[in-house]
Design a protein around this nucleic acid. Structure first.
Lengths: 374, 374
DNA sequence: CTGTTAGCGCCTTCAC
DNA sequence: GTGAAGGCGCTAACAG
């Protein structure tokens, strides 16, 4: 009688049923397990009946509660297993107020950049009982407040990956002490956050170029409404000044972290009366665009112009020449963000924390010594 | 009295509350809206009280049911809005048996490839009332049956993006008539699916190379446990034979869709006694690897060896020379997969459908005429 | 140790 | 038109 209740045996169940209409409770069961449409739900009630206990006891076993006679527990466990019971999380969540889900708010999925962060989050989530609920804010321009409230109801915590306008979310979330962590954001003024050492990374990049003899270094900024964009620019400026490099506003052009802006930014830089001997793009995508522009201008990399990026995306090794860049530990950021979030889920009252991960220079082949320094 | 219940005004609420303890029901409300810990739930009961109706009426308004007096409806609507009511989907789902969520089962998120498919799905989801529940099978090697059952309980439909071993899922899902669509899979034998014309694309690629005068074309296969891998190989073979090109088994090396296998595959091909004048990699990632290997061998692209890929990932334009490739409409596949899934959610009994999207040759700069045909 | 019971928030008959 | 009441599947007291 056991196997027929196990979902892989539905067909067999139907046959068996035809032969067993003298089992009155089976008819009852039929109502619950609508074969056709799906669902085929096995609830704790079914399991309880099968194991000959009350469903409260099944619940106890499910939740590893202490006071269950070992023998009973065993009987319930086998019933559970054989019937292919899977808990209904909605019901559990409704009851407990916890959903065992963490929400992920991202702006866009197309980029490998976010993919890497998510990979890290995912890897860490796999170690827990949580599942991942993904929301993109990219297409629909919903009110952040609505999104936050909505997601808040479905998830026990929220990971905001590089949200467009943090302040819109953070007000509500902080005020409610709703567990959340902002990923790739600097500072804990808006809430708990995980970031990378963007200033330090930019300084490292410029210092490296300077060590190769470059004195006129062009910089293509990232999106300046993001802290990473601002910080990388800051780092560039600090390094240029402290190293005594040529400090010309014309050497800074604004980009938006996307490849086309790298292309046009590089074009602008290359058309300067005195063109830079090296270009530092605030991320890899723009560096690729810059490389394209440099080649289209009939110049060679790194012979005529050196290029350095930021992020160390997988494609950095794929381009030719391979891209020297500043590595940002994206996956690790995802992992730590999740870990931090878990601590807030456990104790929402914890004070805000900001963790900054180090960046690292990855030397490849897109930078060379400056041949003719100005 | 209204504003104080609206979530953006919690602080104000606290203050107001201090002044208004003579409103007895407010105290009651406090219990529901625990300010500190979060939740701050506004339920239909709260709204009903505010609007002076029963909560059944609120529910009716929520579900656009006909028999509600316009005036009452209006009153409820304003209460709803001003209190910032957001439905509890778990409760609704528990009651209705529908979750308004669609599950997404992917193996990995790190690649831009899957990112693009998800973008398409996401774009289409944004037009519906559904949300997206993301599961990765990559890390945890859970039993597919368990995953399917589990996800099945939380979502109204399932999108399987390139699952490792479809048969493990498909049996259970089909038998239950659980709405699902397999993305990037060929044929509807295992269930409804969306795929791309991989055979045709591969034929196009080879035909194009042949038109440039190449007769000895190396092929680096994709993962052969995936239908796309098999089909692209098939297409290559068909084209080689029908066009009368050199048909040497040594010209086919096995890859796995990852860049390193493209590198090593190309090395193998280049070290053949008679090396091919063109290399067709079964996807772009391997093509990038192949390009690296070709350059490392001191050869030029496309001067000495032409390279063609498959997929048209964003990076295809970023490499140098830019990669000629076969475009696969990944985003569109995602979109159509979701659309198809919706039809199955509406009618689970629909017969399986398989939609195949066309592929397209994108000519860039990595292929040139064969100089010295063998 | 185990069973009974009361809801979690919502939808949905069924009365009025 | 609207309210009252039952129950989705589950957990968490409270009794035994």
């Amino acid at each position: 009688m056991v196997n027929v209740l196990c979902y892989p045996f539905c067909e067999r169940f139907q046959r068996t049923f035809a032969e067993n209409h003298f089992f009155p409770w089976l008819t009852l069961f039929m109502k619950h397990s609508t074969i056709g449409n799906g669902s085929n739900k096995v609830t704790i009630v079914d399991v309880a009946r099968e194991a000959g206990v009350s469903y409260a006891t099944v619940s106890r076993v499910l939740n590893d509660e202490p006071y269950v006679k070992p023998e009973t527990r065993k009987r319930v466990m086998t019933a559970l297993h054989e019937m292919g019971y899977v808990a209904n999380r909605q019901a559990r969540s409704l009851r407990t107020g916890r959903s065992e889900m963490i929400g992920l708010l991202v702006r866009d999925l197309g980029t490998g950049y976010i993919g890497q962060i998510i990979s890290g989050i995912d890897a860490e989530i796999a170690e827990t009982d949580f599942e991942m609920l993904l929301f993109t804010t990219h297409h629909q321009a919903l009110e952040p407040e609505y999104v936050a409230t909505f997601v808040g109801g479905m998830a026990d915590g929220l990971l905001l990956v590089l949200p467009h306008n943090i302040e819109n979310y953070s007000g509500l979330l902080n005020q409610r002490r709703y567990p959340h962590v902002i990923v790739d954001y600097k500072g804990s003024d808006k809430g708990p956050a995980i970031g990378a050492d963007n200033i330090g990374g930019a300084i490292t990049a410029v210092t490296y170029l300077a060590s190769l003899g470059h004195r006129r270094i062009g910089f293509i900024t990232g999106t300046l409404s993001l802290t990473s964009g601002v910080d990388r620019l800051d780092g560039y400026r600090q390094a240029v000044q402290s190293l005594g490099l040529i400090d010309d506003p014309a050497l800074i052009v604004e980009g938006d972290y996307h490849q086309p802006s790298g292309y046009s930014g590089a074009q602008t830089l290359l058309s300067l009366p005195e063109r830079p001997t090296a270009i530092f793009a605030a991320n890899d995508a723009m560096a690729f665009g810059a490389m394209e522009a440099i080649r289209d201008a009939g110049l060679r990399i790194p012979g005529d112009v050196s290029v350095i990026g930021f992020d160390d995306t997988p494609q950095a090794t794929a381009v030719s020449p391979s891209l020297t860049t500043i590595r940002q530990p994206l996956e690790e950021m995802g992992r730590q963000a999740l870990q931090l979030l878990l601590t807030y889920i456990e104790d929402p009252e914890r004070p805000f924390e900001y963790h900054e991960l180090p960046t690292e220079l990855i030397v490849r082949n897109s930078c060379a010594s400056a041949r003719n320094t100005v």
